[in-house]
Design a protein around this nucleic acid. Structure first.
Lengths: 122, 122
DNA sequence: GAAACTACTTTCCTTTTAGAAAGTGTCTAG
DNA sequence: CTAGACACTTTCTAAAAGGAAAGTAGTTTC
């Protein structure tokens, strides 16, 4: 008997799959969660502040990722009229809706470390 | 004045950053969330079942990602003693602890779609 | 006027990720 | 004895992601 046709297309699953893909594509890459997490904690920060806060990121990546996040209305970019020009980045109201997701991710990662540590200690 | 030294090393932030990196590295790639989500919904599934359920994935990726997830104790692999050999994949108890994270991700993605749809409709 | 600060952009290069296609090997129904 | 099912692995290649370093551009401090 052939069995190629029966793809599970239950609407609920399809919607969930699509939703997960959407979320991941907006937050893809190595740095977006770090940037968002830092901005959620730290209110407004300048470009150089972020560069110092986020360990390991370079200017190219920071610049590119901030642009992506701005386009998707997750981050505000505000050029200040200061002597050496400064730019203030902050999380948008919409960006704040990612807090539960980021918190879950951090929480799970912390538990994971604890678990690995306990296993190794045995 | 120079400003190269003051890296924010508050323990809380560092731990959160590390935790987020850990979680992301375990769940990296295009397919892990889909596989885990499908297994959480669908109890035990065979390799071909997963291939059919997860739209777009190929055998190479599915095989590789399942191995990764098995190594990290998120997925069980059980070879069944059947005529044409079958393998049953299922989520582990530990894998189930990812449910809240996956749910958050799906929830946010669904809200995002709704928001984009409403904006376009205006 | 040299050095240092702000905020990037650009270029070049390496690594990683992903997919398509074909191959391996076993078993069974017709 | 061939076609199709299951469960992969291997190879080849293309595309995407990421990083290091240098460059651009304006301001300010010493």
């Amino acid at each position: 008997m052939k069995k190629t046709a029966e793809i599970n297309a239950t609407p609920v699953c399809q919607v969930r799959m699509q939703a997960i893909s959407d979320t991941m594509s907006l937050l893809s890459g190595k740095w977006k969660f770090h940037i968002l997490g830092t901005l959620i904690e730290g209110n407004t920060l300048g470009f150089m502040d972020l560069l110092r806060e986020i360990n390991g990121i370079g200017t190219k990546m920071l610049s590119k990722e901030l642009q992506d996040l701005e386009v998707n209305n997750l981050v505000n970019r505000r050029v200040m009229n200061t002597k050496p020009i400064t730019v203030e980045y902050s999380i948008t109201e919409y960006g704040k809706t990612l807090s539960p997701l980021i918190d879950e991710m951090a929480k799970w990662g912390i538990d994971y470390r604890r678990k690995v540590y306990l296993k190794d200690a045995k």
